[in-house]
């Protein structure tokens, strides 16, 4: 960890609403905290809770999930599935001793660039308040020999063990 600690946030954004909104924030030149790293998924329904655990295990201090507003899902109900898993995941995190506030689910539509800005800033602030996530750092994973080589180990066992 560097001397000047900065929150690391992984953001999973659905391509139809929140990712597009983040693009809009960019087009509109809305500056916000640089701590968020956006990973694009097709739908917030693709959000495997393991992605969140993996990110936290690999050094993220917070995770943000962005999906379409209820009723707006491009795939009808993926965001509801995400909400379902998110609610459960928060309980699991609490059990693990991780502050559930480190993970946040937000509905941001494609036209809400300003909301991306607001949420990213809020999230950075929130994590700054909580401080770094004190987990044992996992060993750097060896990269595969070929693209079809090693299948990474199941995640839950990696960072959270011990």
């Amino acid at each position: 960890m560097s001397e000047q600690w900065e929150p690391r946030i992984v953001a999973f954004f659905c391509t139809w609403c929140t990712y597009t909104a983040a693009d809009l924030a960019g087009i509109s030149r809305m500056t916000y905290a640089p701590n968020g790293r956006i990973i694009r998924v097709m739908c917030s329904g693709r959000m495997d809770p393991q992605f969140v655990l993996k990110a936290l295990a690999d050094g993220a201090d917070g995770v943000l999930i962005g999906g379409c507003h209820p009723g707006d899902c491009h795939y009808q109900a993926g965001n509801y599935k995400a909400l379902r898993r998110y609610t459960l995941l928060k309980r699991v995190l609490t059990e693990m001793g991780i502050e559930p506030e480190r993970v946040r689910l937000e509905w941001i539509s494609a036209s809400e660039g300003d909301r991306v800005q607001k949420v990213m800033n809020e999230m950075a602030e929130q994590i700054r308040k909580l401080g770094p996530l004190q987990l044992e750092r996992p060993l750097p994973q060896p990269l595969p020999e070929t693209e079809r080589g090693a299948v990474p180990l199941p995640v839950a066992g990696r960072g959270l063990r011990g």
Binding site: V41, M42, R46, D48, Y75, K81, P154
Partner: peptide, 28 residues
């Protein structure tokens, strides 16, 4: 959409262009 992939407990369900491995690599 990949909703089924996220729910699969054994990792059998996967999504082209968004496999678990690809997203794990991106996270790392």
């Amino acid at each position: 959409c990949g909703t089924c992939v996220a729910a699969c407990p054994s990792g059998a369900a996967q999504q082209h262009l968004f496999t678990d491995e690809q997203i794990y690599q991106e996270i790392e």
